[in-house]
C-alpha cells in the first residue's frame, strides 16, 4: 500500500539516502502518477543527490505542471549557471527569504555587486545563519570593504 511506500520514503529522507528516496518516489508514482508529495520528494531528492539535470527534467515534465516549482527551478538553473534565466524566473516570485537569498547569489555571480549587496541589506532583518559571510563577500567584491 502507498502508506508503506511513504513510510519507506520518509526513512530514506531521514537517513539522507537520496538515491534510494528517488527510487521509492518512483514506486509511488507508478501507483499514483500525479501524486504531488511524491513528485516533490523526487525533485528534492534529485537536487540533494546532486542530479540537477534529473531534477529539472521532472520539474518540466507535464505531470508536474500543476505544481509550483518556480523556486526549485530557479535554483536548478542557478546551479547550471543559467543565471539570467534563473533571475527572470524569480521576478515573478514573492520576495521571501529563500527567493531573495537565491537572487543575491545570482547577482553575485553576474558581478552585479551593488544590487547583490542591496538584497543582503534587506535580508539582514531575517536573521539567516551565515548570511554575513555572503554579505561580506559582496561588500569586498563591490569594493565596499570598509563597511
Amino acid at each position: 500500500p502507498i502508506e508503506d511506500l511513504f513510510t519507506t520514503l520518509n526513512r530514506h529522507i531521514e537517513q539522507s539516502e537520496f538515491e534510494q528516496a528517488v527510487k521509492v518516489a518512483d514506486q509511488v508514482l507508478s501507483i499514483a502518477p500525479g501524486d504531488e508529495d511524491a513528485i516533490r520528494c523526487k525533485v528534492v531528492a534529485l537536487i540533494k543527490a546532486d542530479n540537477i539535470d534529473g531534477a529539472l527534467s521532472v520539474i518540466q515534465s507535464p505531470k508536474s505542471s500543476p505544481i509550483d516549482f518556480s523556486y526549485f527551478k530557479a535554483y536548478c538553473l542557478y546551479r547550471q549557471n543559467k543565471l539570467n534565466e534563473a533571475l527572470e524566473l524569480l521576478r515573478s516570485q514573492e520576495n521571501n527569504s529563500a527567493s531573495m537569498l537565491l537572487k543575491s547569489q545570482i547577482l553575485y555571480r553576474l558581478g552585479e555587486l551593488d544590487a547583490c549587496v542591496d538584497v543582503y541589506r534587506k535580508l539582514q532583518k531575517s536573521k539567516i545563519d551565515s548570511l554575513e559571510i555572503n554579505f561580506v563577500a559582496g561588500l569586498i567584491s563591490a569594493g565596499k570593504a570598509s563597511e
Binding site: 528534492v44 539567516i128 567584491s141
Partner: peptide, 21 residues
Amino acid sequence: NPIVIDLAYNYIDFPSLENRM
C-alpha cells in the same frame, strides 16, 4: 575570491509526509 556559501540550498526542503504514512 571571497568565500560564498550556497545558502539558497538550505531552502530546498522535502514536503511533510506526516499524513501520508
